[in-house]
Design a protein around this nucleic acid. Structure first.
Length: 809
RNA sequence: GCCGGAGUGGCGGAAUUGGCAGACGCGAUGGACUCAAAAUCCAUUGUCCACUGGGCGUGCGGGUUCGAGUCCCGCCUCCGGCACCA
């Protein structure tokens, strides 16, 4: 009987779906395991990255189920976003139709992979039963001052005609379209994630997350400790605050810099002789694209004609504006100490400003600014102090003088969530000329998308072009008012979907806290590393918010995170535009889903990236074929005979394989778990060629199928049925290995001379050190090395190693 | 520049605690079966040499150790992230 994977795979996929094998409910009697793969954007076709992701997730779902856990593995769709909208602009097909079609296609492909989910909990964020809760969440945040609107310079993508969050600007380019991002002053909605900065940093500690993701978040949050103090502008009533992490260098200040957007600048320049020059500079800085602004080139600036007073010594220093100082960080103004800061050094050199060192650079220092530690010089009462002491001392001084204080700063900015696009969740706010911003009453949610004629962005949301949508009565005063027409960033949708899975069909509340309490936290979260700061930071923030309002008991959503490496084809990242996409579909046809899954598991460590190689699947397909032939007896010419050493050896082998596969899966070493099973099937076929025994064969096959069940579930299920075991393999308990069988009587001992292997032999596992040394010395291959030499030392590590150290006289 | 990760055969990779380097697989070569091919099975497959044996070998240079892919010091290269954050 041939291995007809097409037929088998369809059969079992239907069975799992019909019997709802992987649909679960809360069950206090069993340990729970909440397993989530990051939900996909429904692009219509799954690619190898999805296959890899879902294969890992599905393996865990099946493995943990067999281990007796109550496993929740849900799936949903990140179905708002630009592709559907762009397709609508191109083809005129409504984004809703387009999106629902894509979901259908993609769901079918995920099914063909044999990945199983609790589809009863399926969610799609573009459906009103989901996004009404986005709107509800928005209003909860708004009520607590955590969602607010303000006019601010924001990142604007001229291609997509929408604003972007800081996290979505990569190297000054739009994350989606690679267009050059510019700054624009716009009224925009923000979520106040900065209120959570310290907690988002602190709580990283307890997470079982990849180090690099933790590091990326830590850097993104960017905590720094320093000092903020006030400087007065000589000859005026003005003063401004500066922030520095190096208050110990304050005696070296020779100028001060304000960001071009700093509010004081306007007051200082208006009417001054330098007004024209300054305005020219400010305009240029404002219109510069992010990419120009961020490029570390020449540092330029304009002297404002005023001087600031250094509070520690009364010295007057010139005030400049320069675009290397950013309005968005610290106070938007700095004291400049060119002796100890390279940027200030560059600026000072260009404009001929004096440079004073407050720390003597080490001998032979050929650099410019010296940022290292050392006793302070030229620093008044700080002279002689090292950096740490000097910082503490000067902060004390500022505080006692009432001029400044020690402060903490974060690089994290508030999360800009409004977008001027159609295919997103409408923001549930009404602008009333009399009442101001008025929340849409909760009982009027969801605010549904109106139909629009033209989806094309035009610098404002397409929703703004629909009068029936825009013009409403104010819920408070009943007067004429206008709806907010921006939609939310799709990252809002994904910041809480893992909570909704716990209670996905609830029509009354966003979720039942008791159900969430049962399932949360997510025990294993699996996805691509590209979400290291965006989604994973936002989701942590929103979870903390729900915790604070008493709806979620955990403070962190994802206990364990696994980030898979990217799959590339030789020549670079797979992408449609490069035309080097390898579609999973053809492998479902040619090799079957099981072989494809197994190859993904086998390719290499899941954390690493991998280069796709077509012929790799041949290898795993051959392995499955061999498993099939062994199980259905095409290999075996077994006959009943007395049990022999060969039988107990192959059985021991099966149990050792089981032991290794179990521990390998537990540590996410799927590649070696597959290798171990291949080795075992090689041994098993050798055993059969040498004349195996039916009874032993049956037990070996039984164990092999159980081990294979989470990895190549279709073939394992089919054989389980064919060989005549009852019940559904998916819910069989994961087998235990027999510790007695796994034990070895003998082991290979390595005999070294001067650390080099010269011979090996089988010895009993309980060989003593004396015996081991004696046998080793007696070996024929060892003798010649000992002749005419003095044995200096013998290292014996019974039962695996003897190393004889000799010296020639 | 800063932070993180990685460098092992022709290729993907293995070596979990400092103890047999190269498991497993791909590819390749030879053989069996076949009219033939595919499939399958068997064998070989790091490299060099004076080949029943031995030398060399895990990016490079040092070091610790009886023993180093693994630990330490100093470099090089590649990948990823952040990047005028005061």
């Amino acid at each position: 009987m041939a291995y007809d994977f097409q037929h088998i795979e369809t059969k079992w996929q239907k069975r799992w779906a019909d019997e709802r094998t992987f649909s679960v409910i809360e069950d206090a009697t069993r340990p729970k395991f909440y397993n989530v793969c990051m939900y996909p954007y429904p692009s219509g076709d799954i690619h190898m990255g999805h296959v890899r992701n879902y294969t890992y997730g599905d393996l865990l779902t099946r493995y943990k189920t067999m281990q007796g856990f109550n496993v929740l593995s849900p799936m949903g769709w990140d179905s708002f976003g630009l592709p559907a909208e762009n397709a609508a602009i191109r083809t005129g097909v409504h984004p809703l139709i387009f999106t629902e079609n894509q979901i259908e296609r993609m769901k079918a492909q995920i099914g063909r992979l044999g990945a199983v989910y609790d589809w009863d909990r399926e969610l799609a964020v573009h459906r009103p039963d989901y996004y009404r809760w986005d709107q509800w969440l928005f209003l909860e945040l708004y009520d607590r001052g955590l969602a607010y609107k303000k006019n601010a310079p924001v990142n604007w993508c001229p291609n997509d005609q929408t604003v972007l969050a800081n996290e979505q600007v990569v190297d000054g380019l739009c994350e989606r379209c690679d267009g050059v991002v510019i700054k624009r002053d716009l009224d925009q909605w923000f979520f106040k994630i900065t209120d959570f900065a310290q907690r988002l940093l602190d709580d990283l500690e307890g997470l079982e997350w990849p180090e690099r993701v933790v590091t990326m978040q830590r850097n993104w949050i960017g905590r720094s400790e320093g000092c903020q103090f006030s400087m007065s502008v000589s000859g005026t009533d003005h003063s401004f605050e500066v922030y520095t992490t190096r208050p110990d260098t304050v005696f070296g200040m020779t100028f001060a810099v304000l960001a071009p957007e700093h509010p004081l600048v306007e007051q200082l320049i208006s009417g001054s002789p330098r007004e024209e020059e300054a305005r020219l500079y400010i305009d240029r800085a404002r219109n510069a694209s992010e990419i120009e602004r961020l490029s570390e080139g020449e540092k330029t600036g304009v002297y404002l004609g005023y001087d600031a007073v250094n509070p520690v010594n009364g010295r007057l220093v010139p005030i400049y504006i320069a675009d290397y100082v950013l309005m968005g960080y610290g106070t938007g103004a700095i004291m400049a100490v060119p002796g100890q800061d390279q940027r200030d050094w560059d600026f000072a050199s260009r404009y001929g400003i004096e440079i004073i060192r407050t720390v003597e650079p080490p001998a032979g220092w050929d650099g410019k600014a010296y940022t290292g530690d050392g006793p302070c010089i030229n620093s008044g009462f700080l002279d002689g102090l090292a950096m740490v002491e000097a910082k503490a001392r000067i902060i004390d001084w500022f505080e006692s003088e009432g001029l400044g204080r020690g402060t903490v700063n974060f690089r994290l900015r508030d999360w800009l969530i409004s977008r001027q696009r159609y295919w997103g969740c409408p923001i549930p706010i009404i602008n009333c000329p009399d009442c101001g911003l008025v929340p849409v009453p909760r009982d009027q949610l969801p605010v549904i998308h109106p139909e629009v004629e033209d989806y094309a962005p035009a610098g404002r949301s397409p929703l703004a072009g629909v009068p029936e949508f825009v013009f409403v009565e104010c819920p408070e005063c009943g007067g004429p008012a206008e709806r907010e027409t921006d939609t939310m960033d799709t990252f809002v949708d994904s910041s809480w979907y893992f909570l909704r899975y716990a209670d996905a069909r609830n029509e009354d509340v966003i979720f039942d806290p008791e159900k969430v309490a049962y399932w949360m936290p997510v025990d294993q979260y699996i996805g691509g590393v590209e979400h290291a700061v965006l989604h994973l930071l936002y989701a942590r923030f929103i979870t903390k918010f729900f915790h604070d309002v008493g709806m979620v008991d955990v403070v962190e959503p994802f206990a364990k995170l696994f980030t898979q490496g990217m799959i590339v084809l030789s020549g670079g990242k797979m992408s449609k535009s490069r035309g080097n996409v390898v579609a999973p579909d053809e492998f479902f046809e040619s090799h079957g889903a099981d072989a494809l899954r197994l190859y993904h598991l086998f390719m290499g460590p899941p954390t690493d990236g991998a280069v796709w190689n077509d012929s790799g699947v041949d290898g795993t397909a051959r392995f499955l074929d061999r498993v099939w032939r062994i199980a259905v007896g095409e290999f075996a010419q077994t006959e009943e005979r007395e049990e022999s050493a060969a039988d107990s050896e192959i059985l021991a082998d099966a149990h050792r394989t089981l032991q290794k596969v179990t521990s390998d899966i537990d540590r996410f070493a799927f590649n070696t778990a597959v290798a171990a099973q291949m080795e075992f099937s090689n041994s098993l076929s050798a055993y059969l060629h040498a004349g195996g025994r039916t009874q032993t064969l049956r037990e070996c096959v039984r164990l092999q199928l159980l081990m294979l069940a989470p990895m190549a579930p279709h073939i394992a299920h089919e054989l389980w049925e064919l060989v005549g075991y009852g019940g559904l393999l998916a819910v069989e308990p994961w087998p235990r290995w027999d510790p007695e069988l796994v034990k070895r009587d003998t082991v290979t001992m390595v005999v070294q001379v001067n650390g080099k292997v010269r011979d090996k032999l089988e010895v009993s596992v309980d060989v003593t050190a004396e015996e081991a040394e004696a046998v080793a010395r007696a070996l024929a291959k060892i003798q010649p090395w000992l002749e005419g030499a003095t044995v200096r030392k013998v290292i014996v590590r019974p039962p695996t190693l003897v190393n004889i150290v000799v010296a020639n006289d």
